[in-house]
Design a binder for these strands. Structure first.
Lengths: 209, 209
DNA sequence: ACGCACCTTGTCCTTGTGGACAATAGCGGC
DNA sequence: GCCGCTATTGTCCACAAGGACAAGGTGCGT
């Protein structure tokens, strides 16, 4: 059930550290942000960070420059003992892969770790459903179909995958077709959108000019 | 790895149905929305619904009255072959517990099922990160200083040129150096920013994820 | 003087990409 | 039935990209 990946626990709270020991077969405990950098250099990626124990008066650790720098490339599950929605949004936007309650059931935490270890994001249902409600009322409903207008359904799919950086082979696997077919679709996409390559396509799709 | 829970597959697509057979030890196949009601009455809750095969012209199934009625109490993973963000939001707001791509890797689908089976919500990282960006109003994207922080002056220049789609040779000419040197700078950039190639670099530079 | 960070360039090699020829098959409209 | 659009896949090829070895030069602080 648990991931075989080693886990770094970043907290100054001894009780939390003890509780989280059960989260993975190999668990390392640290107290300083710098440990993130060491962790990444050791070619690990899985981290649980306790947001609750920053010294009174000091700014939240994830707003410090060292945070974003050290967080790059890691899969970080941020845990707070007072899960305020805004804090969750802030820390996710600061590069964390997940946000949950410090005292959530261990099974839930394990699941969250598995999810972020596989490259996805984890947001608990409370914050997530609030997000959904928020966005539903403020969506511009606008030009998603703009760049996609002249494209066929299949071309749209391929273009979308290519625009987020996937290789032709990855796209082929994702869509259950051959790499050659992906090329054929992309060729059509490039021509219809008047772009030279996938990078220009990505810029177009993401609204950069 | 798979949940022991029985799984209902709702699709008219034979290929998808066959592919999804591996998702759970017990899998039932259905083609009609009414199957949801039967499923709940049998005291099951786990469902994968293919959104991609509604008959042309007909409204999406999750907007039908029968949907919301039958979906109550079930944990539904909606899968679409054309993952448009708006569709995802719509179906989640209509009562689904998850939204993903029809041809996502089976491991990802299994994970999504486990998550929604445990009462949480599942949203793929593409849609989720877009949600986060949409909602995030206060942090003004921080622009240049952010991604460029760990880079040297020269690396910044090269990165900027590469991020707008210029080839290595074009960058070399623009900066009056050799193509080889451009490669050297880009190699450093990729490493410092933890990205694999220039497309990922472009997305980072332009504030997409 | 020494270390260190930065800028610069070299060659070899593997891989991904995109274009240039193709072909087959389904499906809807005329 | 024929035509056109779409989806699919094939081979061959030229080239850009990025990694893996390198190494020589500058300026700066200790």
């Amino acid at each position: 059930m648990s991931t075989p990946e080693p886990l770094l626990i970043l907290t100054t709270d001894d009780l939390l550290a003890e509780r989280w020991q059960a989260l993975a077969p190999t668990v390392i405990r640290a107290r300083e942000i710098e440990a993130l950098d060491t962790w990444r250099k050791a070619r690990h990626r899985l981290v649980v960070v306790d947001l609750g124990t920053h010294p009174a008066g000091a700014p939240p650790m994830w707003t410090e420059p060292a945070w974003r720098h050290n967080a790059a490339g890691l899969a970080i599950l941020a845990a707070s003992s007072r899960p305020e929605d805004d804090e969750g949004l802030a820390v996710l936007n600061a590069g964390a892969s997940g946000y949950c309650h410090s005292h959530a059931p261990l099974d839930t935490l394990r699941q969250a770790l598995e999810v972020i270890d596989s490259g996805e994001l984890w947001v608990g249902r409370a914050l997530l459903s609030r997000l959904l409600r928020l966005v539903d009322t403020r969506l511009p409903r606008a030009g998603l179909a703009d760049w996609a207008a002249p494209l066929t359904e299949r071309e749209r799919e391929v273009a979308h995958h290519a625009a987020v950086g996937e290789s032709n082979l990855a796209i082929a696997d994702a869509l259950g077709i051959t790499e050659r077919t992906v090329k054929a679709h992309l060729k059509a996409v490039f021509e219809k959108l008047q772009v030279a390559d996938r990078l220009q396509l990505a810029l177009r799709v993401h609204g950069v000019r």
